[in-house]
Design a protein around this nucleic acid. Structure first.
Lengths: 412, 412
DNA sequence: TATCACTTTGTTTAATTTTACAAAAAAATA
DNA sequence: TATTTTTTTGTAAAATTAAACAAAGTGATA
């Protein structure tokens, strides 16, 4: 017994599940082993006592996102990523998590995974903690094997993805074959996403990215790759009710989490339209690049636009600018308003723009302009007189909206 | 005296004014002579009794437009254009017109002008009527001289105008010189108008056109010409408060009067933007042609648009169509709505278009759709869900508005 | 054919927007 | 400088719009 206590995990096993069972027997509690991205690798079966969080983890083969989020917020995961010692987690009823202890599995400076042990009807002693550390060390080698296998698969995936992005694969059957060879379910509806970083992405950042992508559960990401300062994803929008909103959410969420969890700032997200034909992946990729280019030209106007669809009129701004320049056209109404502004030191043009930006809502526009609603009303009346604008005519207003934006860009 | 009564107008005089005075003396009443376009040619001065309409006519050197309009409505002018006999006009206080008698001056089948005689403190006898007819005959020759002189000037004007329209004159000083040579005040702000007829314009129609243009007083028309089925005008917008509205009014009014007065239907009006540089007359002309071309493509949408400015988004529809075709783009929201419509035999797309056309006014849009306002509200909620549209985002709405119109055109 | 989800309409209440008017401040003009 | 015009703000009443809910109708589906 003394010998076993010294290091009961020296024995070599074939599968991780056997390791999980062994740890469970030694510590007398349910045990779960996850990889660095909180995917379930193995779990003990000898003990029937468990908690809801563990059940969902096992059923979904991954830790539920809300549990991960909670563990980040409350500090467990950050702690696990810093220390090689076991961390005690108090029960959190709102996410169905009982008392437990976790330890991270390290290979040099990199975390390969985690072991979780539930404290049901018992509290771990210092001795148990020592055992856990030894267990982590023993699992490490097994995990390394898994990882190298995974890496090879990832490499092949990346090559495939690049062929799709650059339009090198055009035959549908061939593409589907590739998907199957890589054991990826082919998607029927997809979008391409690009996250543009300020600097070239380092391999450390790559790990963070990989972690975030693997733990995101609302959108499937069959393929992703990195190109200099861009992270490029293929996302599946199958079975998603509001895909555009979901993509937007994903963009915001990814940027936010990179900032909060890994202190990586200034990431610009962009997503393409949705397509169903694999041949259009290249086109989708171009769309994301076009989004990035527009966002660079109109940073404030497109600050909360990530999707190509959502670009709206900015989709063809380049075309319109060219046409306007060619024909030396001037919007009469805007010209008149500018003249008035200059002469009377007023700001009717700005007023008009804010009004149109605010969906023609007098209340919110007045607030943004810091004037009384009646003032805005008065100004609008003057604007319609001076610019000969009929505010009931959507065509006129649309034109004004566009010309205002064009003008703004030409000013720069 | 008998001799004088027989034909007192046999004497030759140098000026028309002398004729006017003579007629006035013979008939013992104030007399006015106008050309066919109601411009004052001469008036008697011996008699001080007069009425407000005559005073305005003399001061403005033309019959006020409202008087002309009234005389058309009430039948005097149509009668004068039919018969060579004097016509009696009852007083019309609302336009300051006292009792009077008018006679038209003819050269074969064409009316050259009119003589007006006021019945102040007297009623004309049959003898007076005979005298008037003789006076008209006597004035005719004098008018013919004036007209040939005018025709020559008009010919030179037309040549000049064509040079401007086709951009053959580029030097500003040269252009101003031409204006002066033709005794036309150079305009500082102008627009080009085109009225497109269904058939080539006949010389009879030309007369009607000329009449209408000469009697129109709200806009000055320094130059005009006719090209096959198009009447082309240069209008001055100097000293006009709301020039765009005024141009629109002129277009509508001209079309309306051609229809009412001369039974000439189906005239399509078009007006350019306003310019100040004479070099841009050619450009302005192109704009009007572009308006006509758009109006042909989108007859219902642009039914009440005549001005290039007012074309709004239709100004660059051709460009957008091309871009859309090139990129095989599909508006996701519209696509979703179309799919829904097809599946459920609903008409969400139409609902959306009517709503946007009606300036997002639920009340008027519901009326146009013949549904309850609540129904429209419900549908809009569904539309925003199905199409993932945020109705508070003007950019999205603008895009939808444009894509709806583009789609409509592509359908055809 | 019964059931369910979806759609339309009507009614009422609450919320918001528009309008009219007045007073005062600011700017332009004589 | 006095006077007029233009602009801003405030208040209150009128009008319009949005939201909530119930009821009835419609159509697809099993």
């Amino acid at each position: 017994m003394n010998n076993r206590c010294n290091d009961p995990f020296k024995t070599a096993f074939d599968s991780l599940d056997e390791y999980a069972d062994l740890i469970s027997q030694v510590l007398k509690c349910p045990v779960t082993i996850e990889d660095a991205n909180h995917r379930l690798l193995a779990y003990s079966t000898h003990d029937e006592r468990t908690d809801p969080a563990r059940i969902s983890t096992i059923i979904g083969r991954r830790v539920p996102e809300k549990v991960i989020n909670q563990l980040w917020k409350e500090g467990t995961i950050p702690a696990l990523l810093k220390t090689k010692d076991p961390i005690r987690v108090k029960n959190m009823d709102e996410i169905g998590l009982g008392n437990r202890v976790a330890i991270s599995i390290w290979k040099q400076e990199e975390v390969l995974g985690f072991i979780w042990a539930l404290e049901i009807n018992k509290s771990f002693t210092d001795e148990d903690f020592t055992l856990l550390k030894k267990a982590a060390e023993a699992v490490k080698n097994k995990l390394l094997q898994l990882q190298t296998r995974k890496n090879k698969k990832e490499e092949r995936s990346q090559e495939f993805f690049w062929k799709l992005l650059t339009g090198h694969l055009k035959n549908r059957e061939e593409i589907i074959e590739h998907f199957h060879a890589l054991q990826i379910t082919p998607v029927t509806s997809f979008a391409v996403l690009v996250f543009q970083f300020q600097e070239n992405i380092t391999s450390k950042e790559e790990q963070s990215i990989s972690y975030l992508l693997k733990t995101s559960q609302r959108l499937k990401i069959p393929l992703y790759t990195i190109d200099c300062n861009q992270l490029i994803l293929l996302t599946s929008t199958d079975y998603i009710d509001n895909p555009v909103q979901e993509l937007d959410y994903f963009c915001e969420n990814f940027v936010m989490k990179m900032k909060e969890r890994f202190k990586i700032n200034h990431i610009t997200p962009a997503s393409s339209s949705m397509y169903k034909d694999y041949e259009k992946i290249g086109k989708a990729y171009e769309e994301t690049l076009s989004v990035l280019s527009v966002k660079e030209k109109f940073p404030s106007e497109t600050a909360d636009i990530y999707n190509y669809q959502r670009l709206g009129i900015y989709q063809f701004f380049d075309h319109l600018l060219e046409k306007r320049k060619m024909s030396e056209y001037e919007n009469y109404s805007l010209k008149k308003l500018h003249e008035y502004d200059q002469k009377h030191h007023s700001n009717l043009v700005e007023t008009l723009e804010v009004f149109l930006n605010n969906d023609q809502n007098i209340h919110t526009a007045a607030k943004e302009l810091n004037v009384h609603a009646n003032t805005l009303n008065y100004r609008l009346k003057r604007i319609s007189e001076i610019g000969e604008i009929n505010f009931k005519d959507p065509n006129q207003k649309v034109m004004l909206f566009i010309d205002l934006k064009l003008e703004k860009y030409l000013e720069k």
